[in-house]
Design a protein around this nucleic acid. Structure first.
Lengths: 232, 232
DNA sequence: CGGAATCTTGAACGATTTCAACGGTAGTGG
DNA sequence: CCACTACCGTTGAAATCGTTCAAGATTCCG
C-alpha cells in the first residue's frame, strides 16, 4: 500500500488530456474524492483481475504495466511517465484491470481518480462528455500525424512536413512560421539530433529555400519544400 | 456537389475506429441516414465556417484538409486516406468546420454520417458512449506507444521494443512470439527497410539471441533484448 | 562578469539505405 | 502437372545519411 495519501488539486488533474476538457466545477468535484498516492519503487499499484474502480494519472515518476506469466516471469506491456493516464479504458467498460501495475524502480506519485464518479459526471452532462470525446479525437489526429511524420526516413522530409502544417503567415510562394518549441525539442520531436536539424536548415539556407532568425523561419520556396515533403 | 450518393452498409461504417464499438442495431440506424458520396478530383467536400452537421469517413481515395490564406494560397493541414474519419471533433462540439476539405486529385468516396444522429445514439445509451470512449483511449495508448518506438534512433531497439510487448508464450529467459503482419509491413511500421529488418534478425541469430521460422520468432535471450530496448 | 544552455559548425565514424542479385513460394494459365 | 510469373525475404557491396564527438559562438541568467 502507498506510503502517503494526500489530496489532489483540480489543477493537477487538468494536466491529464482526458480530464482537461472538464469544467472547473467538475474537476473540483472529481478532486474531492481523488487522492495523490505515493508509491515506493516497484510497489504494486493494482493487480490484473481486480475490478477497475479507479483510473490513475501519473503525476511524477513512472508506472510499469506488466503481465506475469506462469513461471513468474514479468512481461512489460507498457512503461508510462508523467502526464499519462492509466486504466481509463477498463474504467469506461466497467471491467477489471487487464494487467498488473507497479511503480517504476524510483517510485511514483499517482493521482487516483474514482472511476464511478468520473463516469457519473460525464453521464449527467452530455456537453462535457462531448468535449471529452472531441478532445480525444483531436489528440488522436495529432498522434496519427506524428506517426506519419516519424515514419519518413529522411530528416529533411520530416522537417518539411512539420513546418508546412504550422500556422503560417505570408504570401504565395513564400511565408513565415514560428517554431512552437526550442530547436532542440523540435529535433527530439522529429526524431533527429539538434545537429542534424541545424544542418538541414543550413542546407535550405544555402539553396535559398529558407531564412532562419531564431525561432522564426521564412520559407522562401514553398514549392520546393512541398515537393520534398511529398516525396516517397 | 458529389457525383453520386449511394446508401452505406453498417459493415462499411464499422471500418472506422470511432464507430466500431457500436452495436449492430446502432450502426444500422446510423447507416439508414448515412450516404456514400463520390467526389471527383479536387471537388470541395465542405468549407470552413459551415456548421459541422456531419462527420465523414474516407472509404477510398483521399481527402485534403486545407486553409486558404488571404491571397488564395492553399495551406494543406492534413491529407487523410482510407479508414480515417474527418471532422468528428467539430461535430462533437456542435461547432463549424475549422478548415476546408476537398477530395484528393484522384477523387474520393466518403461516408457521410449525420452528426446529430450519432450523438443522439450515444446520448441515449451510456454503455455505447463508454465503449466509444474506451476504444478511443485504447487507440490513443497504441499510438503513443508507436510514437515512442519510432522516436528511437536504432533499428534494433525499435524491433526489440516491438517484439517485447507482443503477446508471448514461453518460459523464463526464452519465449516465442508470432509476427502479426508480414515482415515487409512490419518493417514499414518500424520505419526501416525490409533489408534492415532481415539483417537485424540475422545479427540476433548469429548472437544466439533469436531463432526465426517464418513469422514465428523464438527469443532465446530475453534479457539481452530487454537491455537493447531499454538503452538510451 | 562568470556560467550554463542553446545553437552552430566541422570531421570521422557508423548505421541504414540503396542497388542488385538470388532462392523460395504461391498463384496462374497452359 | 508443369512452366511461368510475381512477390517476399535474404544476402552482398557500395554509397549515403545521420550520429557522435569536439569545439566555438551566442544568448540568457544568476
Amino acid at each position: 500500500m502507498p506510503v502517503k495519501s494526500l489530496p489532489v488539486s483540480a489543477m493537477e488533474l487538468r494536466s491529464f488530456p482526458l480530464l482537461k476538457p472538464l469544467r472547473e466545477e467538475m474537476l473540483t468535484e472529481l478532486a474531492s474524492t481523488a487522492r495523490a498516492l505515493e508509491f515506493a519503487g516497484n510497489e504494486v499499484v493494482f493487480r490484473a483481475g481486480e475490478p477497475a474502480a479507479a483510473l490513475y494519472g501519473v503525476l511524477s515518476g513512472s508506472v510499469v504495466l506488466y503481465r506475469s506469466s506462469a513461471d513468474g516471469r514479468e512481461q512489460v506491456v507498457h512503461d508510462t511517465g508523467a502526464g499519462r493516464t492509466i486504466a481509463e479504458a477498463a474504467v469506461f467498460q466497467y471491467g477489471s484491470f487487464p494487467v498488473h501495475a507497479r511503480a517504476g524502480t524510483r517510485g511514483a506519485r499517482l493521482a487516483q481518480v474514482e472511476g464511478a464518479r468520473f463516469l457519473a459526471i460525464l453521464d449527467r452532462d452530455p456537453a462535457a462528455m462531448h468535449s471529452v470525446l472531441a478532445a480525444l479525437c483531436r489528440r488522436l489526429h495529432e498522434l496519427v500525424d506524428r506517426v506519419e511524420i516519424l515514419s519518413l526516413p529522411d530528416a529533411g522530409q520530416r522537417l518539411a512536413r512539420f513546418l508546412l502544417r504550422l500556422p503560417a503567415e505570408g504570401r504565395a510562394g513564400s511565408f513565415r512560421v514560428r517554431l512552437p518549441v526550442a530547436k532542440k525539442d523540435l529535433a527530439a520531436q522529429l526524431a533527429m539530433t539538434p545537429e542534424t536539424l541545424s544542418r538541414v536548415l543550413k542546407r535550405w539556407r544555402e539553396q535559398a529555400w529558407a531564412v532562419v532568425l531564431d525561432d522564426e523561419i521564412e520559407l522562401l520556396d514553398a514549392a520546393a519544400l512541398e515537393q520534398i515533403a511529398a516525396e516517397s
